[in-house]
Write a protein that binds this DNA or RNA. Structure first.
Length: 104
DNA sequence: CGTATGACTAGCT
DNA sequence: CAGCTAGCCATAC
């Protein structure tokens, strides 16, 4: 079975461990199209698995909490991440400490 | 198939 | 530091 880009994105996103976050570009790179960060975000928005896929563990390349049209948006997202152990720097995620690094 | 859309990113001013 | 532009991609219609 051939996984669609979107399927891969969901798969990788689901692989993000608790307390860690990944950037759209990173996910895009993991699925094979590092320039498809846009498409990645698109799937997160059209997510049907928002309760299944930890889309809240996906942030912008600079650690900003972009998007997230769930709950109170970035507020809820930030809360969830902080609760999971993600380090925050002001209003952004401290990628230097909480960016997920896929171990292959 | 062509157009429109979007939770992106990097570079410049 | 903030704002803007251009480039790139997959999906839906």
């Amino acid at each position: 079975m051939k996984l669609s880009f979107k399927e891969k994105v969901y798969k990788v996103a689901h692989d993000i461990p608790k307390g860690k976050v990944a950037t759209y570009g990173q996910l895009a790179c993991l699925v094979g199209n590092k320039k498809a960060a846009r498409a990645v975000g698109l799937f997160m928005k059209n997510n049907s698995d928002r309760s299944v896929v930890p889309c809240h563990r996906v942030v912008a390349a600079n650690g900003a909490l972009t998007g997230y049209s769930f709950g109170r948006g970035s507020a809820t997202k930030k809360k969830m991440l902080e609760k999971e152990g993600v380090i925050f720097k002001g209003q952004k995620v401290d990628l230097s400490k909480s960016q997920w690094k896929k171990i292959v």
